[in-house]
């Protein structure tokens, strides 16, 4: 069931980023739904799963829509890893941590994109773009992540409880995970 929820969420993220937010945005400023989802899953499922999810989603998005394959994957994988660093360190209902992860991940990803775009010959002032586009997008991504995290936490709640109980038992028995 958990996998089904994740697949549905991933499809929704792809749709939102490639179709919906491309048409509905605030003067070009748009949130990154896949980034929000990756950050949330990193915090909920850990570093390995978060990074793997980010990598797969990034590669799919790159192959489908981007002229360069690998750039988004880099950003999403980073967000998954960063989110995983907070795995089981905070209460699952803390929505600030995933939101911060999404914001930092979005800034990282957009900076990677900016570097690639500049290498391709585009002329722009980095700090202007940082102030007028990257930071507002990161803020929107963080806001979307709060909503996403609340939904995903609820969707994955049963599975997470089982996993946490299993890990507690393993530690109690001195087993190595």
């Amino acid at each position: 069931m958990r996998r089904l929820y994740i697949v549905i969420a991933a499809a929704a993220g792809l749709y939102l980023d490639s179709v919906f937010f491309a048409r509905v945005n605030i003067s070009g400023i748009r949130p990154d739904a896949i980034m929000a989802l990756t950050a949330s899953l990193g915090v909920l499922l850990g570093m390995k799963k978060g990074a793997l999810f980010g990598l797969i989603m990034g590669l799919v998005a790159d192959v489908l829509y981007s002229p360069m394959v690998g750039l988004s994957a880099m950003g999403y994988m980073f967000a998954g890893l960063l989110g995983g660093a907070f795995y089981q360190k905070y209460y699952a209902d803390n929505i600030i941590i995933p939101a911060l992860v999404a914001a930092v991940g979005a800034i990282f990803k957009e900076c990677v994109m900016a570097a690639a775009c500049a290498a391709g010959g585009a002329k722009f002032g980095f700090f202007t773009v940082l102030g007028t586009y990257i930071l507002p997008c990161a803020l929107l991504s963080a806001a979307v992540c709060m909503l996403t995290h609340a939904l995903m936490r609820r969707a994955l709640a049963g599975q997470l409880k089982v996993e946490h109980a299993y890990e507690r038992d393993s530690h109690a028995q001195g087993g190595v995970k």
Partner: peptide, 14 residues
């Protein structure tokens, strides 16, 4: 047109 690239960096679509 079935999808657009994310963000403002590349103006590509599928």
């Amino acid at each position: 047109v079935t999808g657009n690239s994310q963000g403002v960096w590349f103006e590509t679509f599928t």
